[in-house]
């Protein structure tokens, strides 16, 4: 059996073939999970988001018209739900648990030395998380998901030029964040 194209699966699903929907889920579940996971930085949240994306898709695909690719729609919903999650979380925890607990690391306490060198990868992850929304989305889709600018432009409804700028500034900011962290630590 040859692999059906996305739009063919959608057509079959619209004609009542449930297995086509399952096929689409299997095709995109991992991609969608990872986009959500990278934006939300949390497994459970990413899982909720991925489930919600397909629950929405289940009704939306019934009247889906083939003038844009299915994955564009799926990824866009994923990015939006993920950014919403981050926003809600920020609002809810404007005192983040980390804020309390990093205040402790002000020296003197010798056991703290064990933790002195906060690992570099952790810092990079933090840096990605603090990016402004647009830069974060552009960075994750381009750098981590390796989509083309044209694809990302369809998903985020942003111009290619704007995306390239976002991408560059994202990487620059990540570097600045890491440098700043190293400096404050060595003082």
């Amino acid at each position: 059996m040859s692999l059906l194209k996305d739009f063919e699966l959608v057509e079959k699903f619209q004609q009542g073939d449930e297995t086509s929907f399952n096929e689409l889920v299997k095709r995109y579940q991992e991609k969608i999970y990872w986009i959500a996971r990278r934006i939300a930085a949390d497994h459970d949240a990413a899982d909720d988001i991925a489930q919600e994306v397909f629950i929405k898709a289940y009704s939306a695909l019934k009247d889906f018209r083939g003038d844009s690719a299915v994955y564009t729609w799926l990824y866009r919903v994923t990015v939006n739900l993920s950014l919403n999650y981050v926003r809600r979380k920020k609002a809810r925890n404007f005192f983040r648990i980390d804020d309390f607990f990093t205040l402790e690391s002000d020296g003197n306490d010798s056991p703290d030395k064990i933790f002195e060198a906060k690992e570099h990868n952790q810092l990079l992850n933090e840096a990605i998380q603090q990016l402004p929304e647009k830069q974060k989305a552009a960075f994750i889709l381009r750098y981590q998901e390796e989509l083309t600018y044209e694809e990302i432009s369809d998903i985020l409804k942003t111009s290619v030029g704007g995306l390239k700028a976002n991408y560059f500034h994202a990487v620059k900011k990540i570097g600045e964040y890491v440098n700043r962290a190293h400096k404050t630590r060595s003082i």
């Binding site: 309390f100 607990f101 402790e104 056991p111 064990i114 690992e119 952790q122």
Partner: peptide
């Protein structure tokens, strides 16, 4: 197996526990 995760968790635990 990720030392970064390990260190961060240990650090959080220590600080949180102390507070």
């Amino acid at each position: 197996e990720n030392p970064a995760v390990y260190n961060t968790m240990m650090r959080k635990q220590y600080n949180a526990a102390k507070v």
